[in-house]
Design a protein around this nucleic acid. Structure first.
Lengths: 333, 333
DNA sequence: TAAAATAATGTAACCGATTACAATATAACC
DNA sequence: GGTTATATTGTAATCGGTTACATTATTTTA
């Protein structure tokens, strides 16, 4: 591998000049630049990223820390981030935090030493002090799905409350009168917002009762259990809005086990828009978040901050979309 | 951030001695070491990974290049790799190649400049010349699912042929007599092996015919289409072995559309063991690959090679497991 | 007991870039 | 025409470690 000194020697100039040509940081005589370019070409020279990193304290790497890539919500996010980053010549480091603040801290510690350019956290557990520390060290950071009160950096999420309202309204339109809600863990702001959206619309219904809500865990099994509980209290419920798609799948399973036909007797709607929803039987109506776009946007904002050295503490809420499918289909009568 | 020179100054020794204490590369007087450790503690010193990387040509990063993290097969692989890497203090860079050799080459080019310690390719498209080039530069590399004929490095895959045989035998045991196969793109060695396994067992059946095989594309839609074709030729088929789970899901969809009951009239078996198979109706029998373990093992081998500087051109085939579920269930009579 | 091996430490080059500062030549200004 | 601004280039320090080589003190070996 040729170094900048090899190029300088061959072109008959100093390394500083070569560096100037490469980075266009300073004026260089066009003729000289020509020589340098020729030498670069001839030696197939490529600047060493690590040496650059050491000098500039930036390795051209962004870190994406998410709870668990196994959760079907995150691959699309990761892909969105990676596509944007790759287009700009940056690479992406992936970390799984398992929603443990400590693991996140440990990633931060390790990656700071590697001069990562910035962080994207798709997580609810990141500690405020960690955010603050990065802020102080001027390391850009973008958060996904985090509360805005604590936000001292850019935050991206989708409009969970509106999405929730969309879902419940849709169920009502399809003829549901007694709509239950399986909500996710309340430490997640997304789960709280979705619950609020549900309450806002469902609360107006004649059949509404707080006991129509049941906690789940954002996974399939908990959705299943929640429905079992709900059916004990309300055997006559005719609609279920699950706080995410996995729990909706669980709901579908539970209903199927009990022989309750979907959508004829009970209609089910999920939230997230992950791929699973297309392969259940019946296919699952859901509120789709623009997950891929969220990832792309997060990367875009991060890259902008990295490049400009500025920080924008804005909160961006992306629109969600109702995808009506068979699980909420209304029979024509 | 304190540097090694700060530590040296505070401890009253040279930087070389500090380095020796940190890396335990050379004998140091215990008393001196004590001073150094105290200084390190006091200054909260952490060695800078980039400077280390520059000097040692290793950044403590491994690259995982896979076709597409959106394909549900790969998150588990990525998680397996990351868990092992993280345990050893290494970080993982993720790249999506979309099965394009050129994109892979571009990742290699970029990442070599970043002094990545090694590569894991979960891909069929990597160019032989790229492997060879890395070999020459002593950069460790592990391949997943790649042909062994060309292998000049460690290769890990699961025993596709045996898995396939397991699947077909299982269908036979469940009473199938006319078993079709949807095979994947033949440039994938996995698809070829699975087909061979199918032929070996199914070829012995009385009802066997080569026209029971139909090409698919490893995605849901192609599975659906393949079944439609197959049903035209063989309306009486009673078993389908799909080359992967996604195509099996497609098969299920096609059968469901036609009102053909599964497993009563036709039994279906997939391959891979991804999570989707648990949420279809009926749940899908599949041949599970130990995907998470494969990732972990790949990382393990890579780390060993990185540490020892050796290369082992071994081919490892991991065992697969039949997971019988409702989609191949035999009615008791 | 002299010679050879081992332990402990320091000096300084090196990894391969960036960049502050200095130096020179040329162009623009009054 | 002298002075100041601008363009062009080079020198050498710097980023923050690792490590080859040299030096001195202490042990082991013959």
């Amino acid at each position: 591998m040729a170094t900048i000194r090899d190029v300088a020697r061959l072109a008959g100039v100093s390394v500083a000049t070569v560096s100037r040509v490469i980075n266009k940081t300073d004026s260089v005589n066009p003729e000289t630049a020509g020589q340098v370019l020729k030498a670069i070409e001839q030696l197939q020279y490529e600047p060493n990223a690590v040496a650059r990193g050491l000098a500039g304290k930036k390795m051209g790497i962004i870190a994406l820390i998410l709870p668990d890539i196994l959760n079907p919500f995150f691959p699309a996010l990761a892909r969105g981030v990676e596509d944007v980053a790759h287009k700009k010549g940056l690479t992406v480091i992936l970390g799984n935090s398992d929603d443990q603040g400590l693991k996140e801290s440990s990633y931060i510690k390790v990656l700071k030493k590697k001069y990562v350019d910035g962080f994207i956290f798709a997580s609810n557990t990141i500690l405020e002090e960690d955010v603050e520390a990065l802020r102080k060290e001027q390391i850009p950071i973008v958060l996904l799905d985090r509360g805005l009160n604590t936000a001292s950096c850019a935050v991206i999420r989708s409009n969970n409350r509106e999405g929730s309202k969309l879902a419940v309204k849709h169920l009502v339109e399809q003829g549901c009168q007694k709509i239950a809600h399986i909500y996710g863990p309340q430490e997640f702001i997304t789960a709280r917002e979705r619950m609020l959206g549900y309450e806002e619309i469902a609360g107006r219904l004649r059949e509404y009762s707080p006991s129509l809500m049941e906690q789940g865990n954002f996974d399939i099994e908990s959705g299943q259990k929640a429905v079992e509980q709900l059916l004990v209290r309300h055997p006559d419920l005719d609609g279920i809005f699950a706080g995410n798609d996995l729990m909706a799948v669980g709901a579908l399973k539970a209903l199927h086990e009990r022989g309750i036909p979907v959508p004829e007797q009970v209609k089910v709607c999920g939230f997230d828009g992950i791929g699973l929803t297309e392969i259940t039987e019946p296919e699952l109506t859901t509120i789709a978040q623009p997950v891929y776009e969220m990832g792309g946007l997060a990367a875009q904002i991060l890259l902008d901050e990295i490049e400009s050295g500025t920080r924008e503490n804005k909160l961006i809420e992306l629109d969600v979309t109702l995808i009506p499918r068979k699980s909420t289909h209304k029979e024509e009568s």
